[in-house]
Design a protein around this nucleic acid. Sequence first.
RNA 1: GUGAUUGUAGCUCAGUUGGUUAGAGCGCUGGUUUGUGGUGCCGGAAGUCGCGGGUUCGAGUCCCGUCCUUCACCCCA
Length: 456
Amino acid sequence: MAQQPSIPKGTRDFSPLEVQRRHYIMNIIQRHFELYGFMPIETPSFENSDTLMGNYGEEGDRLIFKILNSGEYLEKVDPKLLQTGKENQLTSQISEKALRYDLTVPFARYVVQNQNDITFPFKRYQMQNVWRADRPQKGRFREFTQCDADVVGSNSLLQEVELVQLYDAVFTDLKLHSCTIKINNRKVLAGIAQVMGAEDKLIDFTVALDKLDKIGKKKVQEEMLSKGIEQQAIDILDPVFSLSGSYAEKIASMKELLKNSEIGLKGIEELEFINTSILQVPLKSAILDLDITLARGLNYYTGCIFEVAAPEGVSIGSIGGGGRYDDLTGIFGLKDVSGVGISFGLDRIYLVLEQLELFPNSVRAGVEVLFINFGIKEAQYCSLWLSRFRESGIKTELYPDAAKMKKQLTYADRNAIPYVILAGEDEITKGKLNLKNMASSEQFLLTPEEVISKLS
RNA sequence: GUGAUUGUAGCUCAGUUGGUUAGAGCGCUGGUUUGUGGUGCCGGAAGUCGCGGGUUCGAGUCCCGUCCUUCACCCCA
């Protein structure tokens, strides 16, 4: 017995049913992307390392899969470096390429590279795999699929509004009701840090604040203290910890807190505009909620940020996220192009739909008719009709071997094929086909044309 | 990267205080009037008990290491 084969940690195989269900989700997302005017592009699975590195924060860079150079990659390395064991420097010498970590940064690279051929504002969608060298966990893989829609070249907040509506449209169509679209604004977070006098600790402060609903007020305060934020500053935060009420009420409280911060008030103004616009055309099934604690780790966001939480009772991380990045293309040399986008986490949406049993039965669409194989002569008679059936749009297959009837019928049964056709000597003589309904066991002796019209 | 957890047939798992040839169910395969499946009956194949070391007369069972699984943290879809 050979050793059991296996696949790398955090990767998965997909069975026929799983692939069909994934296509079901992707088709719905794709349809709405296109309804909102987004165009598809694709980019390579791997990029030059310097395209990716430095955009995701320190943690993010650590999770990028690096690709080892080909050939004698060690020859070019400074021997001293090997001995000192400085991994960061060593990595850059033996690896020049890396698997993409998300779709947004490669997209920014694409925009810069193709700027002369692009008419702005440019709206694109992209549904491809990304890779993260994370430790796998529930709903967390090292290879997974993101479905992104981004707009670059427009500062208009109407884009943010449309993206919220797009989220709502997709989740409504998936019958996934009561998702919460959490929204916040980096400017508000910057404003809070300003008011606290902790501008230099912005990242530490937001990372700690982000954990509020998970570990509670006290632990968040402890973490901030340990990061060197003054107790006095943390006290100013108090209204944020106890923020409650409707979207509009939270806006009002935050206005008061941020009254001395220009940037903070700008963020609040944006959030207010989005809410007002959304209220004019109410969302169909999702809930838009202002969550001041929402931070998101990706470095490049500068304005509104989004995160989608699955309906209550489903314990899984966020199923989507996004936000505005004012200068992502700047790092590749194209200034003053603002972008905003959202992402759907296909794999997590799958897990949620599975847990809530929201996949329609019709998703499983296999063969409709199986021709039983009685032997060469009979099979040749059947093959005349096979192509006719297929031309009529009926998914048809002929059992390849003249195996025992029991085996062939078991095959049909296992594959949930609803009809089989028995065409042996008798039927050939009469020029007919015997159509058997697998569920009811009824059989009908019909002409091929009658069978086609019955099944199509 | 930190901390826990798991590993026995293709799958889900039993396996008693360490004691001869390691079990069950499902699945697979063959047969049960060779033109009739889903439930019956009879038979069969399949495991160097994750891997490496150690303790012992003897290890699936105890000890150490390692890898893998799963979970939490970090971070994130």
